[in-house]
Amino acid sequence: MALRSRGGWWPALCIGITASILAVYILLVTSNWIYLGWHDTLYFFSKSRMWERFWLTVWTATVSTSFSLFIGIPAGYALSRFRFPCRYLFASIIDLPIVVSPAVVGAFLFGITTRFPFDWISEYYGIYIGRNVYGVLLVQFTVTAAFCARLMKASFDMIPVRFEAVSHSLGASPLRTFFKVVLPMAKNGIIASMIVVWARAAAEWEGLMLFVGATEGKTDIMPFAIYLDWNGGMMGWVTSMSIVCILMAVSAISAMKLIGGRSNVW
């Protein structure tokens, strides 16, 4: 609901400040694009190095988001609906990766990958989780799983429990109720949350820097590659990849608002 529009200096000041924020962002993007120039834009965008990194970012973020959803949906539902011992403690602990810097998550992961179950997975399945793409997935998953559970909780909180009560009264089991009633009703919230989680995974790099390190074409997802190219003084690559990141972010936010707007999660 919007207030009736009116003139005067106060609305003008507020709108002016909003416009200036927008102007700063537009200036940031356009000035970098101008710095890069049309010719160089085409050059960098035509290089396979750019698109290899882009696809690495897309698929690792997609896989880690899938794992996060696999954990986040039941965890979010449990936090939203069930009363169990240490629920509040669990809810606080699950928030930790959101509050704690991803660098700390990366450092902690470094300490546990030599222990069970990671050493066991490495020994029996030959899957070493460390300075490779599995490491990227693990960092992205660790950083986003809790975030995902939080968002899922918000999605399930939006659904009144009466629907479940009615479903049960009609003879449906809790599992059937979850799949036939709760999940479809939470669909928009879940999709919107999934996009946010995906964007968060795609933007991760601090944890990666500590735990995985950079291997050209293997672990350097876009934000990480920007950092590495910056250190190497490759400003053309930095600018062009930044523009791709911004386009990815704008697409994710637009999709989130389009779907999430209907879900009332955002």
């Binding site: 009144p160 009466r162 629907f163 009560a165 479903s167 049960h168 009264s169 003879g171 449906a172 809790p174």
Partner: peptide, 20 residues
């Protein structure tokens, strides 16, 4: 017994029709 085992119908105030 759990609600699904009772065979008692329940119509809440807002009817809670499944919107999907």
């Amino acid at each position: 017994l759990y609600p699904e085992e009772r065979n008692i119908g329940y119509v809440p105030q807002d009817y809670a029709l499944f919107p999907n």
